[in-house]
Write a protein that binds this DNA or RNA. Structure first.
Lengths: 220, 220
DNA sequence: ACCGGGCCTAAGCGCTTGCTCAGCGGCGCG
DNA sequence: CGCGCCGCTGAGCAAGCGCTTAGGCCCGGT
């Protein structure tokens, strides 16, 4: 399989729910362009061009440029919420769940850093109604993580004086991966996830992290 | 002193180096607008309007809209570099210097979150030449922080297996304050600085932090 | 064979954008 | 008082924007 076909396969997985094919190609092109230049600096002509169509074709599948952003933001935030939910609902100690949450959440922000960049840094370009809807997904993600940290604090497993503040910091740390991560950089998404999980567990005073813990892994 | 006069006084301090007065008012208006809507969504008419001038007046003081961003970015990054430099060159253990660095750096990103937002999230709108210049300031800031963490790791005061990775995480954490901080929120800039200093010291395995350390301050 | 509808394009409309330019008011200086 | 000049404005230009419209191709059903 060639590189182009491979990328197309990846896109089909990430945007699998979007049909028909032309609509999916447009979403994919828009994510690329928005991540690269920002929403406002991206023209509908650019998006259509990347998708191999004329500018007018965009409006057959989406009413406005903002609707494209909304679709991307919705799918991305739902994916992020599902990732956090899977970690939160898993069995295990608070430490194990927190490790899993940070590892998978940070890794997703690295692996899908173009999508993540768009959904995290272009929120203000959404219409007020769409923003309200997306904000709800974000609150739910925050609540899931906060509950994990609260559980650890309640049981004495974590040392977290300010649970909302710690939650905010952990979420902020993971989200900001989308800003600095580059596929050309020295770190793989897996490595970022592992590093961040270790750092966060230490932040809450649970350095050993139970089974699978490797906070001081490489060299001690 | 009224609220308006107070705000004007603050601006004069932050942008004190910018003269004449009209040029400073334009910088101030541009920071506000860029932070609120983003660089590309801000029009020169909006900037001039906020500064109480006609659109044409902008071009007497700045050649282009991008030059305005460049000036803001330069002044902001130099301030950030000075803050990090002051902490790095201070006397004291690595733990003390790291605490000071994170506390002041995070606090600045909270207190001046509009400026910080512009300099951290609008880099891609700079011309390539201007970006290169700003990137150098960013590298120097990064190097200062990395040296503190390296010192602590070398002396055994910190437990940091991946010094560049830890540096990146700490910087990312502080920078991202600019994205979520709001003056209407429940936290003051001082509180954010204190919280973040505690979290970061634990991240590097130095929870007590020496004199002045209050990692588990509020309730233990 | 023929029609109907889904998908697409070429052309372009109305508007806003970053930026320019000729000219004007008022302050300092002689 | 009169002159020059600095800071500014009103009007507007070329270009590019988001989006629309009229029409054409192609494929499935009858």
């Amino acid at each position: 399989m060639g590189a182009a076909a491979e990328q197309a396969a990846e896109e089909r997985e990430e945007w699998g729910g979007v049909t028909p094919d032309a609509a999916r190609r447009l979403v994919s092109a828009a994510v690329e362009a928005f991540a690269e230049r920002g929403y406002h600096a991206t023209t509908t002509r650019d998006i259509a061009g990347r998708a191999g169509m004329s500018p007018a074709a965009l409006y057959i599948h989406y009413k406005t440029k903002e609707e494209l952003l909304y679709r991307i933001s919705g799918i991305g935030h739902e994916k992020a919420l599902r990732i956090m939910g899977a970690a939160a609902e898993a069995e295990g100690s608070a430490g194990e769940r927190l490790r899993d949450a940070v590892r998978t959440f940070a890794r997703w922000h690295a692996e899908h850093h173009t999508t993540a960049r768009v959904i995290q840094y272009e929120l203000q370009a959404l219409s007020p109604e769409h923003y309200t809807e997306i904000a709800d997904l974000r609150r739910r993600t925050d609540r899931l993580l906060r509950q994990i940290i609260q559980d650890g604090a309640d049981s004495g497993e974590f040392r977290a004086d300010d649970v909302p503040g710690t939650t905010l910091a952990v979420l902020s740390l993971c989200v900001d991966v989308a800003r600095w991560f580059s596929s050309d950089g020295p770190r793989t998404p897996d490595e970022v996830g592992a590093l961040y999980a270790d750092l966060v567990l230490r932040m809450v005073g649970a350095p050993a992290g139970g089974p699978g813990g490797a906070a001081t892994g490489k060299s001690g």
